[in-house]
Nucleic acid binder design. Structure first.
Length: 352
DNA sequence: AACACGGGGTA
DNA sequence: TACCCAGTGTT
């Protein structure tokens, strides 16, 4: 009787050869640049959501030098809508570091690769196994779930102890001769068979030795003890125009949507019901100027992981730029779409 | 160790 | 609504 890691490994690779139908453009690719790009895009992002971004990035920047030499705004524009924009900032930083300081060559040692911005333990292991065929086990959401169930581990996966435990377990299970194939297979298995909800236990080739299945714990594993608190924010964006120019600001604060653009923002603690009179009063009070025209759009909402955004856009036309206004950048209406905006504003620009 | 960071899919 | 997704960086 083989030990459990060996049994799991054998079954996983067998499933991979006979039943794994998952197809992705970066699968089997060895080019470190493409592996890296795909892994950054896929952090906390579903494969189906990331796929088109991978294609468009590769089309715009076929090699790392193309990305390294690109301007910030054009890269953020390509990233627009994908979320977690810090990834984009770090993508650029690392591309430039590799291209301009390391001769365009990705490091292939864990200690070197982990130091690059945007690359943590998961991405480092992915690059080392996929691009360099080195025996590092990836530990992502799929791996936590599969191993927690197969081995019946209830240590919280978001605890320090849990991360260490599952990393060690993942390494014990890894096929050291085929690390890339194994890593790809366990993630595909987690995504298509050992799914978070309604896993395919009845058709699972592991069910004869899966601790969670045998003990009726499938829906209780893995354990996560992180509690997310959501706060509500009330945002009003004043789209201020003067002539054919529109006022925009780049978000720089340590907050959501950093490095993206927005209109003049008014944030309040409580919900506000704007009307023509209150907008006029606001303009006269804050800008010392009477608006020529006001258009109050319907309220909209967006759910983020830690925040619920209640937003409203108000279009305001002035005959000329208010002198008292702290202006950052006036741009022509028809070049607005060259800038990257948060989803809510991008949707407005697409469908005003 | 705890928390923030987006947008979309699923139940 | 609540949870999750090829996680990482900051405090």
């Amino acid at each position: 009787m083989k030990n459990k890691p060996a049994r799991f490994r054998k079954n996983l690779l067998s499933w991979n050869e006979t039943s794994n139908k998952r197809s992705m453009p970066w699968k089997g690719v060895k080019d470190p640049y493409k592996i890296w790009l795909s892994e950054i895009i896929l952090q906390q992002t579903r494969v189906e959501q990331g796929r088109k971004y991978y294609e468009s990035f590769l089309e715009a920047f076929p090699a790392i030098g193309d990305l390294a030499k690109a301007g910030d705004e054009s890269v953020f524009k390509l990233w627009e809508g994908l979320g977690y924009y810090n990834r984009c900032k770090n993508l650029l930083k690392t591309a430039r570091e590799i291209y301009f300081e390391k001769g365009g060559i990705f490091p292939d040692a864990y200690e070197d690769i982990i130091q690059l911005k945007g690359i943590g333990p998961y991405t480092a292991a992915a690059m080392l196994s996929f691009a360099f065929n080195k025996p590092y086990a990836v530990v992502d959401g799929n791996v936590f779930r599969v191993l927690a169930r197969i081995y019946g581990i209830d240590t919280p996966i978001d605890s320090t102890e849990g991360k260490k435990y599952f990393t060690d377990l993942a390494h014990q299970n890894l096929d050291k001769k085929l690390p890339g194939v194994y890593n790809q297979a366990i993630m595909d298995f987690g995504a298509t068979v050992c799914k978070p909800a309604k896993p395919e236990c009845n058709n699972c080739i592991m069910n004869s030795f899966c601790a969670a299945y045998l003990n009726g714990l499938v829906n209780h594993l893995p354990v996560k003890d992180n509690i997310i608190r959501k706060k509500i924010r009330h945002l009003t964006w004043l789209k201020i125009s003067a002539g054919n120019k529109v006022l925009i600001y780049k978000r720089t604060a340590n907050d959501i949507w950093q490095n993206l653009y927005e209109f003049y923002l008014v944030e309040k603690e409580e919900k506000t019901d704007w009307n023509i009179e209150s907008v006029k009063d606001f303009c006269n009070h804050v800008f010392s100027m009477n608006p020529q025209q006001i258009n109050i759009l319907p309220k909209t909402e967006q759910q983020l992981t830690h925040q619920k955004i209640k937003a409203q856009i108000i279009e305001i036309d002035f005959t000329e730029a208010p002198g008292t206004l702290h202006a950052q950048q006036w741009v022509e209406e028809d070049v607005l779409k060259q800038f990257a905006f948060p989803k809510l504003l991008a949707a407005y620009l697409d469908e005003p």
